[in-house]
Design a protein around this nucleic acid. Structure first.
Lengths: 208, 208
DNA sequence: TTAAAATCTTGCTGGATCGGCATCTTTTCT
DNA sequence: AGAAAAGATGCCGATCCAGCAAGATTTTAA
C-alpha cells in the first residue's frame, strides 16, 4: 500500500487519478452552478463521461466527491512535510507546507475566481453533508499528518499524544481559517487568515 | 430559540426531550449489545415505543442518534461557561466546565461501566458514520461555544477570529483526548488525557 | 372552560441511494 | 503473446429518505 512514491506511476494509476479529479471537479462545478439539490449523481457521471456506477466506485456521495479536493490537498501537505529539511523547526515546516498547498496556483488552473463562483462555493459549503464530509476528510488527513510528525520528531503515535495533537491543531487551523473566510465577506484571503491563526495557536492562544 | 433557560419548560418540550434522549440511549444500548449493523431503526423505534417515522423526525441516522449524547454534553458546557464568574481567566473557566461535563456522574446513571460495555462502546465509535457525526456535532457545539466566549471576552464572532479559534481548540482537545483514549487500552482516564491536552495547547505546543 | 391554533406523531409513498454480482474491457505481468 | 489482475459498467433488489396529510395532544386565547 505504501510503496515508494517515486515509482513512475503506471498508466492505470494515472487514469484512475484523472477520473477521480474529473469527477470531483464535475461535482463541484455543477453544484456551484445549479445548486446542491439540483444536481444528481447521474448528471455528474454524464459530465465526467463515466457511468453512474463508476461514480459510486470512487465516491460514496456527492459530498465526498466535493471534499476530495481538500483531502488531496491536506494529504499532499503531510507528504511534503516528510521532504522538509530535518533541522527546520516543526512549526516552520508545517506552516510552510500548508501555506504552499493553499496557494492559488496549487489549486486548479489559476483562473481568477469570479464573484459568482465564490458565492456559489460558499453556498455549497454551507450544505450540512458537505461540512460533515469536510470534517471527515480533515480527520483522515490528520492521521497521516500525525504519522509524518511522529517520524520527524521521533515520537510514537500510539504512545505519545504529541504528534496527534499537533496534527489536530494543524487541521483545526485550516478549518478555522476556511470557516471564518466563509462567514465573512471573503475579503481577507484564506492564506492571511491561516497564518494569523497559526501564529496564535503556537503562541498559546494569548488573549488579544 | 434561545429563550431564558429558566422558563418552567412546558409539557410539550419536556416530552420532546424525553423522547430524544430515550431514542439516543436506545440506539447506543442496542448498538453496543448487538453490534452496529445488527440494529435497525425499526428495532430502536420499538425499544423507545415510537414509530420509525418519529425516529426520523428526531434523527436522520443511527449515528446522529448515538452522538446526540455528546452533543448535549458539549452544548451544556457552552452553557455552563456563561454562568462562570466573569473575572475567572478564560482558560480556567473552559477547563472547568468541560472537565465537569466529562465527569462520570454527569453522564448517565453513575453505574460502574463494565468491561464489556466499554469494549462495545469503543467498537461502536470506530464506525465511520459515527465518527463523522461526532465531528459534525463537535462543530455545532463549537459554534455555540464561540458565542459564549465572544460574550465573555467582549469580542465579535464575525469580526475576530479569536473566539472561534478558542472554541475550535477546545473541541479539538476533547476530540484528541477521546481519540487517544479509544486507540489505547483505555487505562488512562479521559479526564486525565483531557487536562494534559489542554495544558499543552495553552502552552503553545512546546516540543516535549 | 372551551374553542381555535399550533405542534407532534404516524402511515404511506415515490424517488433516490446503495452495494453485490456477473460481464466485458483495459492494463500489467511473465 | 498469453495469462492474470484490476477497472468499468449494467442490472437489480434492499434500503433510505423526506414530503404529505390525517389524527392526536398540547398550548393559547377568548
Amino acid at each position: 500500500m505504501v510503496d515508494g512514491e517515486e515509482a513512475p506511476l503506471g498508466l492505470r494509476e494515472r487514469k484512475k487519478r484523472e477520473t477521480r479529479t474529473a469527477l470531483s471537479w464535475a461535482t463541484i462545478r455543477l453544484s456551484v452552478e445549479r445548486g446542491w439539490d439540483a444536481v444528481t449523481v447521474e448528471d455528474i457521471a454524464a459530465e465526467a463521461n463515466v457511468s453512474v456506477r463508476t461514480f459510486r466506485n470512487y465516491f460514496s456521495s456527492k459530498a465526498e466527491a466535493v471534499v476530495a479536493r481538500h483531502l488531496d490537498r491536506m494529504l499532499g501537505a503531510a507528504d511534503d512535510l516528510r521532504a522538509r529539511p530535518a533541522d527546520e523547526p516543526l512549526r516552520e515546516a508545517i506552516a510552510q507546507v500548508v501555506a504552499a498547498r493553499f496557494a492559488p496556483e496549487s489549486a486548479g488552473g489559476g483562473r481568477p475566481p469570479r464573484r459568482e463562483w465564490v458565492d456559489g462555493v460558499r453556498l455549497m459549503l454551507t450544505e450540512p453533508d458537505v461540512q460533515g464530509e469536510f470534517l471527515k476528510a480533515n480527520m483522515i488527513a490528520q492521521r497521516e499528518l500525525a504519522k509524518a510528525i511522529a517520524e520527524r520528531t521521533g515520537t510514537d503515535v500510539t504512545r505519545d499524544v504529541y504528534p496527534t495533537l499537533v496534527a489536530a491543531v494543524t487541521g483545526t487551523a485550516a478549518t478555522v481559517a476556511i470557516d471564518h473566510w466563509m462567514r465573512t465577506d471573503g475579503s481577507a484571503p484564506v492564506r492571511r487568515l491561516l497564518s494569523e491563526v497559526f501564529d496564535r495557536l503556537w503562541a498559546g492562544l494569548p488573549v488579544p
